[in-house]
Amino acid sequence: MYSERAFVVLTPYESRRLIAKAIVRLPSVEEALQNGWIVVATGSTTCYVAEELLGQPMVKENFISGHITLGETWSTLDNPDFIFPIVLHKGIRQDIHAKQALEKFSAKDVFIKGANAVDNNYHAAIFMANDEGGTIGSSLGTLYARGAQLVMPVGLEKMIPSVEEAVKHTGNKSYRYSTGSPAGLMPIVQATVVTEIQALSAMFDVQVYHVGSGGIAGSEGAVVLVIEGKESNVTQAFEFVQSLKGEKNLLRPHGTPKQ
């Protein structure tokens, strides 16, 4: 039985910051920072994880490839300032391609890749516009074969009824019409999925419930959460959420047409 409750709202960008701060505290990530390899794939959530790991701000829009904006799916492959996946070895950034780092991966190393969908069983999935599966298509075999750690940050704004069902109805060559770049959907198993719920639960030893979503005037995609637990823990969690307020929205990446 709970002893205290808090009712909080997080915009999608505040959620991204929360999830990123939780991910860098995961035992698997802390271990890899000290003794192994970490690869952070590009994405609109992983850019926040990259900032937290590097300990410095970056132009996050340059760390985004495929994305949804202006009501369509887009790719930003023509961005001259594009930042490629970030590779760390024992906490030090390496000037090598992610594929080179994957060749060195062991079971204790960590690959961080955002998701485009998550269901209420915390099964996650990733869009694939590239015919060969893009980043996840070229990495997943190595990660599974070696038993490496796959960490997937994904906000509850991306919740769908069922990943299993959604996969049955996708495929980038299967549509007659498409608003933007058509994509298939890859379901992911054996991943550590981190939403706002897992983030707050792990950081503050509380129970978290997703009770509402949506908003207007900049709060589109916001999630409403109830936090329950010991008074001191709920207070800390609430104060932490308040500290995230004001996180700036991401802008359209270079290469996305203006409205």
Rank of each mutant, 00 (worst) to 15 (best):
A217K: 04
S181Y: 11
L185I: 03
S174L: 03
I197Y: 07
H210G: 00
R176I: 05
V223A: 11
P161I: 01
Y177H: 14
E196S: 01
G214I: 13
A166Y: 00
V189H: 11
Q190G: 08
P161S: 03
E228Q: 14
V163T: 06
T192N: 15
G218Y: 02
Q207D: 12
E196G: 08
Y177M: 12
N172S: 12
G215Q: 07
T179R: 08
F204M: 13
F204L: 12
V208I: 04
V206H: 02
I188M: 03
P161F: 09
V167F: 04
S219M: 11
P187Y: 08
V208R: 05
G184N: 05
E164K: 13
I197E: 00
P187V: 00
S162V: 09
I197L: 10
N172E: 09
V189E: 09
V223C: 06
H169T: 06
S213D: 04
S219D: 05
V223Y: 03
A202R: 14
G212F: 12
S213K: 15
G218K: 09
H210C: 10
V194R: 12
A183E: 01
E196L: 09
V189W: 14
A191E: 07
L185P: 03
A166C: 04
A199Y: 07
G214L: 14
V193A: 01
L225K: 09
V163Q: 01
P182M: 03
T192M: 08
V189Q: 08
G171Q: 13
Q207G: 11
G218V: 12
V226P: 03
S178K: 02
V167L: 03
G218E: 05
E196R: 13
I216P: 01
V194F: 12
S162M: 07
A166G: 00
V223T: 13
E165I: 10
